[in-house]
Design a protein around this nucleic acid. Structure first.
Length: 153
DNA sequence: GCCAACGTTGGC
DNA sequence: GCCAACGTTGGC
């Protein structure tokens, strides 16, 4: 299967690129959106490239790069009553939510600001720039992925 | 199956 | 903190 590329959002106040660097590999739990889930279930494979995007923070933008390190498997936080991601409709027999492991690759030398991504004409088709795109996982074209990595290096 | 109400996301 | 946009829920 050809390698694919993704952008995954995280709130750094909750889990940042530095946390990922420290953890090396992290289960990407808490995704509670069907479109994002289906990307993980149907399209992701081990080795895919991941842009790590910091949302809801200052600065906003892409902080680094990782890779998909596992296939999708049940998100156990959905079973945990004490988790903020608890979903009573997800059961062990029939898990509704899944996650993949994400492995740290690099923290960008130059944080790639959302404002600079907006200014770059070649990136105008990027999903996160489209109006009101709230998807926490979006596919990224290889050429866009490579350009953002270049901007960050 | 419609749709109003509600909760969440996330940039500003 | 605001609020627009969107997804989900649930009554009908």
């Amino acid at each position: 299967m050809p390698k694919k590329y993704w952008l995954m959002k995280t709130e750094p106040g909750c889990f940042s690129i530095d946390d990922l660097k420290k953890a090396k590999v992290e289960p990407w739990d808490g995704v509670r959106n069907y479109q994002a889930r289906n990307f993980m279930r149907d399209e992701m494979s081990v080795g895919d490239g991941v842009l790590i995007y910091h949302s809801n923070s200052d600065p906003l933008g892409v902080a680094g790069m990782g890779r998909v390190a596992s296939k999708a498997y049940p998100d156990h936080t959905a079973f945990d009553k004490d988790s903020r991601h608890y979903d009573p409709k997800s059961t062990l027999e029939n898990p509704r939510w899944i996650m993949v492991d994400v492995e740290f690759k690099t923290k960008f030398k130059n944080f790639v600001l959302l404002a600079d991504i907006r200014k770059e004409a070649k990136l105008k088709e990027l999903r996160i720039l489209q109006k009101a795109n709230r998807l926490s996982i979006t596919p990224v074209d290889k050429k866009h992925f490579d350009l953002i990595v270049k901007m960050g290096s």
